[in-house]
Amino acid sequence: MSYQYPISHDWKIDEIVDVIKFFGCVEKAYEGGVERNSLINAYKRFKEIVPSKSEEKKICGEFEETTGYSSYKIIKKAMESEAIQKIKG
């Protein structure tokens, strides 16, 4: 797919890379599945970069609007599904 990830110009390069990795994990979940631990670790790093709930909603909302993939639903599923090793959207 050809689209842009929602990023902030205030982030450092390593933060941008980590946010892109998080959104990549969300994409993988919808496109076939992603390892639960990889997704949760990517989300934890994302939350270090974007600690504000309102900013998270804004960025994830932009991502969902562009891709159709809900990071909220995938993260919720991963957090509630400790026994499942592969998360699918």
Rank of each mutant, 00 (worst) to 15 (best):
K21D: 14
A42G: 05
Q4I: 12
K58G: 00
I20P: 02
S8L: 07
S70P: 08
Q4R: 12
V34A: 05
M79R: 10
I7F: 02
K47E: 15
A83T: 13
I13A: 06
G61L: 06
S8V: 00
E27Y: 09
K53E: 13
K21T: 11
Y69A: 06
I40Y: 05
Y30T: 08
E55M: 09
I13H: 03
L39H: 03
K88R: 13
C25A: 10
Q85G: 07
A42W: 01
K44N: 14
D14N: 09
E56T: 02
P51R: 01
W11P: 01
V34D: 02
W11K: 03
A42V: 05
C25N: 14
I59D: 01
D14K: 06
G61I: 11
S70K: 08
K21W: 06
K77Q: 03
I49S: 04
K88T: 15
E35I: 12
M1R: 09
Y30R: 11
N37A: 10
M79V: 11
S52G: 00
E55P: 01
K12G: 03
E15K: 05
L39A: 04
V19T: 14
A78W: 08
G68P: 02
K47T: 15
Y5I: 15
R36L: 07
S2G: 05
T66P: 00
T66H: 04
A78K: 02
Y72L: 09
S52T: 03
F23R: 10
S81G: 03
S70C: 04
P6K: 11
T67C: 09
K53S: 09
E80S: 11
S81Q: 02
G61V: 05
E31I: 09
W11A: 00
P6N: 12
D14F: 00
E27K: 12
Y43K: 00
